[in-house]
Structure formats: C-alpha cells, structure tokens
Simulated scan of single mutants.
Amino acid sequence: MSFEATLKKHHFHPIIDTHYQFGKALIVDLSPSSDIWSQVNDEHDFSAEIKRQVAETNAVIEIGRYAEQRMIYQDTDNFSQSSNRTLHIGIDLGIPAGNTVFAPIQGEVVALANRQQQGDYGPVIILRHQLEGYTFHTLYGHLATSSLQNLYIGKIIQTGEAFAQIGTFAENGGWASHLHFQIIRDLGPHLDDYPGVVDPKYKTFYLQNSPSPNLILQRENLS
C-alpha cells in the first residue's frame, strides 16, 4: 500500500480542538487571481478581509490551501532573497492564539527552533513518526514561544498529547494567528527547518515529499 493510502486509512487524533478542525470553515484563496484582492487596500489588508469574511459566514476556522500559488511573501524579510518561492505546501489553520496543538500520532521531537525573521515560522517543531513501515515527519509552525520550553530533541510525544500552542503575531513570525501544518517524508539536509513555501519550478519533488496535510487532518471536501 502506498504512503498516501496508508495515511488516508489511518485514524489520527485531531491536531487542534475538534470544534475547529471539523467545524465550519472559511476556505481562503490567496492566489493572485482571488477576489479577495479587490477588497484589500492600504487600510484593510488581506488578514483583515479574512476576519471580515469569517464574521460574515460564522466560520470558526480559516483554512489556507495546500499547493496554492501565493504572492504574499515577497515583502517579508524571510523571502527577500528568494522571491521565486511562491508555492505553499502546507495547510494553514487559522484559529486564535493560545489554542492547543496535539500530536496526531506518537512521534519523536527531531527539530525545534525559534525562527524570528519577519515572515518566517517563529517557533517551529518537527516530529518524526512511524506508521506501518513508513517513516515521515509533521511540521508545526507559527507556535507560541512557550511551546519550546519543555521539549528537547528525542522526546517522545504520545498520540493525542498536547505539546504546543498557537502563537501570537508578536512571536509567530509576524502573521495573523494560525498553525502551518505540513507532512514531510524526507527532511534531507534540513536540521531545524523545512520550507513551507517553495519555488514552483520544483513542484513535482516538493508535492511528492510533502503530500497534502489533509491525509492527516481528514476534513471532508478539502484537498
């Protein structure tokens, strides 16, 4: 059975409260052709427009799409030398800061860092997992600084264990509060990081190495 099929049939613990993970969602389109940009101006940025749409639709979570082309990163310090990175290869789960993050399956902490350059992950944690003969990783970005305090490389996190919290704008790399969640098969040379936005020129490799996080989230009608 393929890796993707193995994940799809497995029952994972929710990574955030089920009220959010499976609740009414605003699926956010941040691609260049999105209608959202017609509502954006100097006094009303895309984050404010997303919040307006959340209130209008009574959504409880904002979901940023996997494999989406975006042009929102190029004005940040983190992307100043890599303007060709525009393909988002995680899923963003927009919920209030302070909410708990849970392990979807038992894992080992293999990386943790506080990447504070504007536009970066802020606090980030990577777990390594084993499932039916496959080794893979999950990445959690834009966390609260306190999430790093009681962790260390090699620590085992049990299925469903609370191990992190969602960070604020002031600590999460300068973004509206959300969790960037990503699956990574092979970390390659990366020690405490893995890109969540990549050059579309390498799309085939990255989408194979980081398949859709919804294989673990398991929300209906979400790729």
Rank of each mutant, 00 (worst) to 15 (best):
S2T: 12
S2G: 08
A5W: 04
A5M: 14
K9W: 03
I16V: 15
H19W: 01
H19K: 08
Q21V: 03
F22A: 07
K24Q: 13
A25T: 09
I27Y: 14
D29P: 13
S31N: 14
P32S: 09
P32I: 11
S34G: 09
D35E: 15
W37L: 06
S38V: 04
Q39G: 01
E43D: 13
I50Y: 04
K51T: 03
I63E: 02
R70C: 00
R70G: 01
I72G: 06
Q74S: 10
N78F: 14
S82Q: 06
S82L: 06
S83L: 12
L87F: 08
D92E: 02
D92S: 00
L93V: 01
I95H: 08
P96V: 02
N99R: 13
V101L: 13
P104C: 11
I105V: 08
G107N: 05
G107R: 11
E108L: 14
V110M: 13
A111C: 12
A111L: 15
L112Y: 12
A113C: 11
A113V: 03
A113N: 15
N114V: 08
N114S: 13
Q118V: 05
G119L: 08
D120L: 02
I126Y: 04
L127D: 02
L127S: 04
L131F: 05
E132M: 09
H137W: 02
T138Y: 01
T138H: 06
L139V: 12
L139F: 09
L143S: 07
L148I: 06
L148D: 09
L148C: 09
Q149E: 14
L151D: 06
Y152C: 11
I156T: 15
I157W: 05
E161Q: 06
T168N: 15
F169G: 03
E171W: 03
N172R: 00
A176W: 09
F181H: 10
D186Y: 09
G188W: 04
P189V: 12
D193T: 01
G196D: 01
V197T: 15
V198M: 06
Y202M: 05
S210C: 15
S212G: 12
N214R: 08
L215R: 00
L215T: 05
E220Y: 05
L222C: 10
S223W: 10
S223C: 02
